[in-house]
Simulated assay, not measured.
Amino acid sequence: MTEIKMVITDLDGTLLQADHSISTADYSTLKELGERGICRVAATGRNLVKVRQALTPDMPFDFVIFSSGAGLMDWKKQKLLIARSIPSEETGEIIRFLMEEKLNFKVSREIPDNHHFAWWRSTPCEEFERYLNYHKVLGDAVPLKQGDAFPISQVLIFLRRGTELFVTIKQKILNHFPHVSVIRATSPLHPDFTWMEIFPEGVTKARGVEEVCHITGIPQEHTLGIGNDFNDMELLDYTRHSYVVDNAPDELKFRYRNSLSHLKDGFSYAVRKHL
């Protein structure tokens, strides 16, 4: 079996418990990985402010990939290494297009200030209201105006759950804006909704891992990844050994190796198969 030199884990629904804590067993596994000289990487869709709600600076991680790969931090040094954004010229066109498509969406400011955002409501949508009410306490949340254009790190579109709808809108976006990344995620707020995320070109969790491999000199074939949702697919397609926890969608459980639920220390169960 290939020696593991780097372990990459998603946070919500994978490593974190329902209360956003790390279980005693999983924390112990992270510590042991460090003692063995194995690089520990968190890869999450959370922005940096929300990462800090779950991870303190002394947590046993070496790197944190956040905003689905738009940002990368050396966690031990608390140093921002990478921050990617979409320039204002293209942002203005994207905002205008999404308004014309009558979609509900928000755009996040540049990293590290991407907890601040602007929003557009085209139609009544309970998911949009849930998101707005929860996140407006974390940063500025202002309504967009026609003609707005400024650099952003992410667009988040709120859609009713359904693969066909996602695929249709994704294709429209890529036809108009071929130089962006479009990522699918299950809403953490309500299972009846899907989130479509638009990022700068090439941004994925996998690219973040590739950058950590370059920084550390660790080859791809010595990596292990574990996740739970569709926005982890690029990551899991990249890592040499790839697992999903038992609470992942069936579509992913058919595609990758299976572990236990995140509530049953699925992170540790997968990792310890390789120690």
Rank of each mutant, 00 (worst) to 15 (best):
Met1Pro: 10
Thr2Ile: 14
Ile4Phe: 08
Gly13Met: 02
Thr14Pro: 10
Asp19Pro: 07
Asp19Tyr: 10
Asp19Val: 07
His20Leu: 13
Ala25Cys: 09
Asp26Pro: 10
Leu30Gly: 11
Glu32Ser: 10
Arg36Pro: 00
Gly37Glu: 08
Ile38Gln: 11
Ile38Tyr: 08
Arg40Tyr: 01
Ala43Lys: 09
Thr44Asp: 07
Gly45Pro: 00
Val51Lys: 13
Leu55Gln: 10
Pro57Lys: 14
Asp58Leu: 12
Met59Asp: 14
Met59Ser: 10
Phe63Tyr: 15
Val64Leu: 06
Ala70His: 00
Gly71Asp: 08
Met73Glu: 13
Asp74Val: 04
Gln78Arg: 07
Leu80Asp: 00
Leu80Gln: 12
Leu81Trp: 01
Ala83Gly: 13
Ile86Phe: 00
Ile86Gln: 06
Ser88Phe: 03
Glu93Arg: 15
Leu98Val: 03
Leu98Phe: 15
Arg109Lys: 15
Ile111Asp: 09
His115Glu: 05
His116Pro: 01
Ala118Asp: 04
Arg121Glu: 11
Thr123Tyr: 08
Pro124Glu: 14
Glu126Ala: 14
Leu132Pro: 01
Gly139Asn: 14
Pro143Asn: 04
Lys145His: 15
Lys145Tyr: 01
Gln146Ile: 07
Asp148Arg: 08
Ile152Asp: 04
Ile152Cys: 14
Ile152Glu: 04
Ile157Cys: 10
Ile157Val: 15
Gly162Tyr: 00
Val167Gln: 11
Thr168His: 13
Gln171Phe: 02
Lys172Gly: 05
Lys172Ser: 12
Phe177His: 06
His179Tyr: 14
Ser181Gln: 12
Ile183His: 08
Ala185Leu: 02
Pro191Phe: 03
Thr194Asn: 11
Gly202Met: 07
Arg207Asp: 05
Arg207Gln: 15
Glu211Gly: 05
Cys213Pro: 05
His214Ile: 05
Ile215Glu: 06
Gly217Gln: 06
Gly217Asn: 02
Gln220Ala: 11
His222Glu: 10
Leu224Pro: 00
Gly225Glu: 01
Ile226Ala: 11
Asn228Arg: 02
Phe230Gln: 08
Met233Cys: 12
Tyr238Gly: 03
His241Ala: 08
Asp246Phe: 12
Asn247Val: 04
Ala248Glu: 02
Pro249Trp: 07
Leu252Met: 13
Arg255Phe: 00
Arg255Trp: 03
Leu260His: 13
Ser261Gly: 04
His262Gln: 05
Asp265Thr: 04
Asp265Ser: 13
Asp265Leu: 00
Ser268Arg: 10
Tyr269Ile: 04
Lys273Trp: 00
